[in-house]
Simulated assay, not measured.
Amino acid sequence: MSAPESVEVRDEEHARARPFEWWHHSHPTFAALTGFFSGMLFVTAVPGGFAALLRLLFSYDRAEKLFPWVAVFLVVPIVLLARRKTRRFGQYMALGMLLTALVVGGVASLVLYFMVRADA
């Protein structure tokens, strides 16, 4: 009877030492949620941050010429998809990136359509 009790005590001590470690290993949606929202943030924050950094460092014309280099950041999700250990996270990150891009593009096209139609 003492063996199961010692295992429980050891598990409790381990849980107290690392209180949030269970999220990374046992929760089934951790990789999905963090990957999806990371993809959303990646699509919105990385190009904006890159443009702001370029604008701070260079003139407007030079920053405009260097902006296409933001595509280099697409290596990050590709590497995540290539490695077996991070593939699930990478899949959901790519899904978050794709859906965010579709929503932003769809809303922008609708707004442009209604603005042009109202002007005519």
Score class of each variant (00 low, 15 high):
Met1Lys: 06
Met1Ala: 11
Ala3Tyr: 15
Glu5Met: 08
Val7Ala: 15
Val7Tyr: 09
Val7Thr: 14
Glu8Thr: 09
Val9Asp: 14
Asp11Val: 11
Asp11Gly: 06
Glu12Thr: 07
Glu12Leu: 10
Glu13Thr: 06
Glu13Phe: 14
Glu13Val: 13
His14Asn: 08
His14Ile: 10
Ala15Leu: 03
Arg16Thr: 06
Ala17Ile: 01
Arg18Tyr: 14
Arg18Thr: 01
Pro19Arg: 06
Glu21Ala: 11
Trp22Val: 03
Trp23Gln: 11
Trp23Lys: 01
His24Thr: 12
His25Pro: 00
Ser26Asn: 14
His27Ala: 14
Pro28Thr: 04
Thr29Gly: 12
Ala31Ile: 00
Leu33Val: 15
Gly35Ser: 02
Gly35Asp: 04
Gly35Thr: 10
Phe37Leu: 14
Ser38Pro: 00
Gly39Met: 11
Gly39Ile: 05
Met40Ser: 13
Met40His: 03
Met40Asp: 02
Leu41Asp: 01
Phe42Pro: 04
Val43Cys: 14
Val43Lys: 13
Ala45Cys: 06
Pro47Cys: 06
Pro47Ser: 08
Gly48Met: 08
Gly49Phe: 02
Phe50Ala: 02
Ala51Trp: 07
Ala51Glu: 09
Ala52His: 03
Ala52Met: 07
Leu53Asp: 03
Leu54Asp: 08
Arg55Val: 00
Arg55Cys: 00
Arg55Leu: 08
Leu56Asp: 07
Leu57Tyr: 04
Phe58Gln: 07
Ser59Val: 01
Tyr60Arg: 13
Asp61Gln: 15
Asp61Gly: 02
Ala63Val: 07
Ala63Gly: 10
Lys65Pro: 00
Lys65Cys: 07
Lys65Thr: 12
Phe67Trp: 10
Phe67Leu: 13
Phe67Cys: 02
Phe67Arg: 12
Pro68Val: 08
Trp69Thr: 07
Val70Met: 12
Ala71His: 12
Ala71Asp: 06
Ala71Pro: 01
Ala71Cys: 02
Phe73Val: 00
Leu74Gly: 13
Val75Ala: 15
Val75Gln: 01
Val76Ala: 12
Pro77Cys: 13
Pro77Gly: 08
Pro77Gln: 05
Ile78Glu: 13
Ile78His: 07
Val79Met: 14
Leu80Pro: 03
Leu80Phe: 15
Ala82Ile: 03
Arg84Gln: 11
Arg84Cys: 04
Thr86Gln: 12
Thr86Ala: 02
Arg87Thr: 10
Arg87Asp: 09
Arg87Val: 00
Phe89Tyr: 15
Gly90Met: 10
Gln91Cys: 10
Tyr92Asp: 02
Met93Asp: 08
Ala94Trp: 10
Ala94Val: 13
Leu95Gly: 09
Leu95Lys: 00
Gly96Asp: 13
Gly96Ala: 10
Gly96Tyr: 06
Met97Arg: 03
Leu98Gly: 04
Leu99Ala: 11
Leu99Cys: 10
Ala101Arg: 01
Ala101Val: 07
Val103Thr: 10
Val103Ser: 09
Val104Asn: 04
Gly105Ser: 12
Gly105Met: 05
Gly106His: 01
Gly106Met: 02
Gly106Lys: 05
Val107Tyr: 11
Ala108Cys: 03
Ala108Thr: 05
Ala108Gly: 02
Leu110Asp: 04
Val111Gln: 02
Val111Asp: 04
Val111Asn: 02
Phe114Asn: 06
Phe114Tyr: 08
Phe114Trp: 12
Met115Ser: 13
Met115Ile: 09
Met115Asn: 13
Arg117Gln: 14
Ala118His: 10
Asp119Val: 04
Asp119Pro: 00
Ala120Tyr: 09
Ala120Thr: 06
